[in-house]
Structure formats: C-alpha cells, structure tokens
Write a protein that binds this DNA or RNA. Structure first.
Lengths: 195, 195
DNA sequence: CAGCAAGAGTAGACCGGTCGGTCTATGGAG
DNA sequence: CTCCATAGACCGACCGGTCTACTCTTGCTG
C-alpha cells in the first residue's frame, strides 16, 4: 500500500474522525496523533481548522460524486433502478460499518448549521448539487415511463435526499440499519411507485 | 413574569443553547453566564454535563409530547388532518425562528450518535416513543378510511419521523423552510394520499 | 417564642487537561 | 542558496469538574 503525502493523510484521517465523532468533538490533536503528523506540518498545509474542514468535505464530496456517477450513469440499467441500486449499496455500507458512519455532509450540515462560516455555505452548495443529480435521474425515469410525469423532479429529489439523511440519522441513533431499510421500502412503494 | 428557580433556569437556557449551537459546542460556562447562575449551583443540581444534558432533553421531550398530544388527540379533527396540522404548525415555528432551531432530539441524536452514554440511549428511546404516537394516529386514520389499510403504521410512522428530521436538517443548512414545505407536500400527496 | 442544627442552595477560586493557533528551528530537495 | 516541508515547544483561552466557604431555610427542642 502506497504511503500518502502528509496533506492527503491528514484529509483522510479527518474524513474518518469527522464521520464518526463530528467536527466539534474532534480536536486537531486527535487528527495529528492518528495521522502521525506534527502540528507544524498541519498549519503549513491549512491555515485553520475551518480550512482543514473545507478540504475534508471537498474530498468527501468528490468521492461521493464519483460514486454517484458510477451508479446514476449506468446505461445498462433503467433510471429508476439506478436510484434503487445506489441506495441499496448505501444501505449495505451503512450496515458494514455497524451504523457508526453516516453521510459526512449531512452530519456536518446539521452540526454546523448555526455557523455563518464558509463551511456551512459549502455544505449547502454540495447538497444542492447532489439534488440536481438526483433530479436529472428522476427526469430520465419519467421520460422512460418509469415514474409519473406529475412528479416535480427537483422537489422529489429534495424529498429523497432529506429523507435519506433523516433515515441515516435514525440508523445511527438506533445503531441499526432498519430505519434506512424502511425508508427505502416505503419510498419505492409510494413516492417512486411505477405507474 | 415569574422568576424561575435556578435549576429550571439552567434547563431552560440549556434547551436554548443546545438547540442553536449543539451540545459539544456549548460549554457550561456559556450556560451559566446566560442564566446568571454560578458554577457551584450548577454542580449542586447536576453531577455532570451529561446529567444536565439528560435533564434538558427530558424537559424538551415532555414539552414536545404535550404539544403532540394537543394535536393528535383532537377529536374534532380527522386523524389524517391532525397529522397535517401538527406538521404545518411545526413548519410555521421553524420559519418564525428563521430556521435556526430544529428538533433538539434529532439534532442531539446526530451529534451524539457515536457515544455510548446515557444520552444517546435516551434519545433513541424518545424517538421510538414519538414513533408510537404517530403510528397510533395512522392506525386511526386507516380505521376511518383516510389511509390505505396496506400501510404498516409503525414503518410509516418511522418514515415520516426520519423524513421530518431530514427535512428540518436541510432547512437549517439552507436557512430556508422550503425543504420542509416540499417534504410535507410530497408526503401528503404520495405516502399519505387518501384512497 | 427563640435558638440551634442540619440540610439545601449559592458562590467562585482553583485544578489539570485540551483547544486552536503561533513561532522558531531544522532538514531536505532542487 | 532558497524554498518547501517538518517538528514540537509554547501561548492564552476554554473545558468540565472539585472544593471550600458562606448563606438561607426548615424543623426540632427547650
């Protein structure tokens, strides 16, 4: 396994710790210790904890988007099934991690909602861009007859996304993937029911 | 206006600050300062920050339950409309607070999900009890013909609750009540559609 | 009724630890 | 030599909690 450079290692560890503990409960001391990198290096690469946080969420969002692309651009699969498979995979990963890791963007969004800094603005923008992706897939599903034309793609995408975030939150609190299981079952049986 | 006793004042301020800033980002120093109560009094009433946190969520849950009761027990209103009115009122209050205050239980649940202490367990139990309340109302709506008999009341209640938490989270990140508006519209047009 | 004792409650200085950030020194690469 | 990167001691502030001192209230006894 190739050794990462210091900056990447910090970001990687940041993703891990922010995902499990949250932003405020994670001091940079813990990040440094886990990454085995001294403080001077940290402040050479990042001017502040906030700038570090931004780098972490950018990395996470990039990876998430890459994964979203793999699933939502799969032309061998019908649009509605792309959505379904994407979320089912998400459920699998949640269960594999024993519900300790949710969605970093949603988690940090909640935790940092009261702040006015760059972090919250960036999180908001990321959530909106994801929503656009889902909306595009919903539009495709409508064009192929899988979903009713009366559904508003943007609003429905927002519904799905926030519903997903809420279900993941519940799974983390309950330490069980069941809330996500139930969310998906009902979502595809009602909102995303085939005509 | 009647002056509260010290303990109640602390709990009240705790609800306020935890709701806007979160648990970890709120030091007890800030609570004490805002309440105008010295530290010795704090530790006389609460053995620790965690015990204080428990008292705060119990107070919040009690108030929330009382409000839930007012709406869900209103026999002048049909069961489905009770749900609708309850959430519409919730949306109003969210907008009145300019999306700075969400649902304390959901927020703390997310923030403290990684912990093993009493706080997370209590939060989990509260969410489950709320789910039972919603399930009972859904059952009533089914019996009165407002909802399809094929809906599972428990699962549907869980769906609604986690969807609501996710929508409120989005509203806070976006600083707009729109996600909740959209959540409610779609929920009542699809999942809770009348037969 | 007055005085006393015990318990409840208030008050804030103090403690060790952690926090995010600063700064000086050093080493390595080009 | 210069620039980039590493290294870690140090700083003031804040953290949750401890502890001693003091005040107030209540109940009991003489």
């Amino acid at each position: 396994m190739q050794k990462r450079d210091a900056k990447s290692e910090l970001i990687h560890v940041g993703m891990e710790l922010f995902s499990t503990q949250g932003y405020n409960a994670t001091g940079i001391g813990a990040v440094l210790k886990k990454a085995g990198i001294p403080k001077g290096s940290f402040y050479h690469h990042f001017r502040s904890k906030e700038e570090f946080g931004l780098a972490v969420i950018e990395e996470f969002a990039t990876r998430f988007l890459a994964r979203l692309d793999v699933f939502l651009s799969d032309e061998q699969t019908s649009p509605l099934n792309r959505l379904k498979i994407f979320f089912e995979k998400g459920l699998e990963r949640l269960a594999d991690h024993e519900c300790t890791v949710g969605c970093l963007i949603g988690d940090l969004g909640q935790e940092l909602a009261a702040r006015d800094g760059q972090l919250r603005n960036r999180l908001d923008a990321i959530l909106l861009s994801w929503r656009e992706r889902f909306a595009a897939c919903i539009r495709e599903a409508q064009q192929s007859g899988e979903l009713e034309k009366s559904l508003d793609p943007h609003r429905t995408a927002g519904f799905i996304l926030s519903g997903w975030e809420g279900a993941v939150l519940s799974a983390k609190v309950r330490k069980s993937p069941q809330p996500v299981r139930e969310f998906l079952d009902i979502l595809f049986a009602t909102v995303l029911r085939k005509p």
